Computed example of a mutant assay.
Amino acid sequence: MSFPVAHLFVVLGSSLLAVAVLMAISFAIGAATGKYSIIDAIWGPGFVVIGIVSFLVSAGGNYGDPTLRWVALAAVAIWGLRLGGYILLRNHGLPEDPRYVKMLEGHSKFMIVRKVQVPQGVIMWFVSIPVQVAMLLPSPALWLVWVGALVWLVGITFEGIGDAQLARFKSDPANKGKLMKTGLWRYTRHPNYFGDSAVWWGLFLMVAWTWIGLLTVLSPILMTYLLVAKSGKALTEKRMAKSKPGYAEYVNSTSGFFPLPPKKGAVTA
């Protein structure tokens, strides 16, 4: 069976419409509550919405391999719901994120739409393209699907454990002002960002056995670039360097992204 290119455009268009609706809902919630940071909690579940829409729209044409479709949907759902739930709990009871407060100074609330929601919506849609393609691929190379699932599992494990370790560390008043550098944080300064990247490389591998799947490589590349050079690692490290004593030493002793043994002489407790 050949790949249904025409139906892919139907799936892509449907998911883009779903993203637009989701961003509108996010803006409405922000306007009603005064907390536009809700977009952060919606980020992960937004991918789940795309996965479900892609799954349902593609089902109408009886396209795709059932195993690959369900594996891709389950993978993106587990990742997205875990991340969304974690961020929602982390931000519960906190005031508006200072980033958005600063962004709105002297501007109307629609500045959030232009500078946050539209870019995030487009990125969400683009990064999710491997999942959308997975819904339409026939007779997959199962060995590569399971390799991708293994990479995804490594990613979700690093991200989940890293977030849990950091949350537990921050919950202890004795650690106020201190730097987290134990557990997975001993091997990488950003186990959550590394895990996030691995999740999307795993999803890409699930479809990389076809020419159309290979074309989606820009999706995990974009996600990794954002995590390393833009909103993830770079932004976090800039803030940490100013607020956490001893962060320079931590940088010198611990891998910046990919997990590696700490350098000799590193302080890990």
Score class of each variant (00 low, 15 high):
5 V>L: 15
6 A>N: 10
9 F>T: 08
11 V>I: 09
15 S>K: 11
16 L>G: 07
16 L>Y: 06
17 L>V: 09
18 A>E: 01
26 S>D: 09
28 A>S: 12
28 A>N: 12
33 T>G: 15
33 T>M: 07
34 G>V: 10
36 Y>N: 06
44 G>H: 00
44 G>M: 02
49 V>D: 00
49 V>K: 00
51 G>E: 00
59 A>K: 11
59 A>R: 07
72 A>E: 04
73 L>P: 04
74 A>Y: 04
76 V>T: 02
76 V>W: 04
78 I>A: 03
79 W>A: 09
80 G>F: 02
82 R>Q: 06
83 L>K: 04
86 Y>A: 10
93 G>K: 03
96 E>Q: 05
97 D>N: 08
105 E>K: 14
106 G>H: 02
112 I>C: 07
117 Q>K: 12
118 V>Q: 03
119 P>S: 05
129 I>F: 09
131 V>G: 03
132 Q>T: 04
136 L>D: 00
141 A>I: 12
144 L>T: 03
150 L>G: 06
152 W>Q: 05
154 V>E: 05
155 G>P: 02
158 F>I: 06
159 E>Q: 12
160 G>E: 06
164 A>Q: 15
168 R>D: 14
177 G>I: 12
181 K>I: 10
182 T>C: 06
185 W>A: 03
191 P>I: 05
193 Y>F: 13
196 D>H: 14
196 D>G: 13
196 D>I: 12
207 V>M: 02
209 W>S: 08
212 I>F: 15
214 L>G: 07
215 L>D: 05
218 L>E: 07
218 L>F: 12
220 P>Y: 02
220 P>G: 04
221 I>N: 05
225 Y>L: 13
226 L>P: 04
230 K>G: 08
232 G>C: 05
234 A>S: 15
236 T>P: 07
241 A>D: 10
242 K>L: 10
244 K>S: 13
246 G>A: 04
261 P>V: 05
264 K>F: 09
264 K>Q: 13
264 K>D: 12
267 V>C: 14
269 A>F: 15
